[in-house]
Structure formats: structure tokens, C-alpha cells
Simulated scan of single mutants.
Amino acid sequence: MDIGALIPIFAIVFGNAFAFGVIYFAIVTRNRERMALIEKGATAEEIYQSRKISKYSALKNGLFLIGIAVGLIVAAIVSATTTLNPVAVYFAFILLFGGLGLVIFYLIYIKNERNQPGRDF
């Protein structure tokens, strides 16, 4: 049997084993953390309080993904019209516009948090 034919099999088996191991480790760690909080007398509300989704998480993720999409479009245009290295152009514009989306999110977040009563900024 050719050793080259075994490489995909090993890749699939070890890839799935690695994914299972990471998920198992995350679940076990979360369970240990919760058990420690319960032993200290924490209530269910206190345990799940840190897991609440921020009301701004959808906005952050949306602006980040929009920035990546705009970066891809701009990179395709620049790559087609110039003699620059296409790989470098794609990486640069994806990172630039993804970061720009996060900066825009930060500005929106700060503006909205300043308008909240009881906040000291």
C-alpha cells in the first residue's frame, strides 16, 4: 500500500480527534468552573451573568464582516487594475477594512454609552 494514500486518512482521523479534544476540554473546564462557583455559594444568576450576550455584539460582528466584504471588493479592483502582488493586496485590504469596521463600532459604542444615564465618561 502506498504511504501517500494514508495521508488523507490520518489527516481526517487526527483532525476530528483534535476537534473532539478541544470541545471536550472546553466542556470539562466550564463544568469545573461552575462547580467551583456552586461550592462558593454562587446562585444560578451569578453563574450565567458572564455568559450574557452584549446588546452590541451583533453590531460589532456585522460591521466587522461588512468591512471584510468591502476589503475583498476593493482588493479585487486594485488587484485587477495594478501590478501589485495580488496576495499582499488581498491581505492588506481585508485587514484594513476589517479593522476600520471595528473602529467604526467603537465610535458608535462610545457615542451610545455616553448618552446612557448614570454613566461617567
Results as ranks from 00 to 15, higher is better:
residue 16 N to P: 07
residue 65 L to H: 06
residue 33 E to V: 14
residue 8 P to A: 14
residue 120 D to C: 15
residue 19 A to W: 15
residue 97 F to L: 15
residue 11 A to E: 08
residue 88 A to K: 08
residue 58 A to H: 09
residue 79 S to W: 04
residue 114 R to K: 11
residue 38 I to F: 10
residue 23 I to H: 13
residue 1 M to N: 05
residue 76 A to G: 09
residue 116 Q to D: 04
residue 103 V to W: 05
residue 97 F to A: 11
residue 3 I to T: 02
residue 91 F to I: 04
residue 20 F to L: 13
residue 107 L to P: 01
residue 91 F to P: 01
residue 120 D to P: 13
residue 54 S to V: 00
residue 61 N to I: 07
residue 40 K to M: 10
residue 17 A to Q: 09
residue 28 V to D: 05
residue 44 A to T: 11
residue 32 R to F: 09
residue 85 N to Q: 00
residue 57 S to E: 03
residue 119 R to K: 15
residue 69 A to W: 05
residue 41 G to P: 07
residue 96 L to R: 06
residue 43 T to E: 09
residue 118 G to M: 08
residue 36 A to C: 04
residue 9 I to E: 01
residue 36 A to H: 12
residue 67 G to N: 11
residue 46 E to T: 11
residue 70 V to G: 03
residue 89 V to E: 01
residue 105 F to T: 07
residue 18 F to L: 14
residue 56 Y to K: 09
residue 9 I to A: 00
residue 76 A to E: 08
residue 67 G to Q: 10
residue 19 A to M: 15
residue 49 Q to K: 07
residue 61 N to A: 07
residue 102 L to E: 12
residue 64 F to V: 06
residue 57 S to C: 02
residue 109 Y to H: 15
residue 3 I to P: 00
residue 18 F to I: 14
residue 86 P to C: 11
residue 90 Y to D: 02
residue 92 A to Q: 12
residue 55 K to C: 05
residue 119 R to G: 10
residue 74 V to G: 10
residue 102 L to V: 01
residue 39 E to R: 08
residue 102 L to A: 02
residue 64 F to S: 08
residue 82 T to P: 12
residue 70 V to H: 05
residue 52 K to H: 06
residue 71 G to N: 04
residue 81 T to W: 05
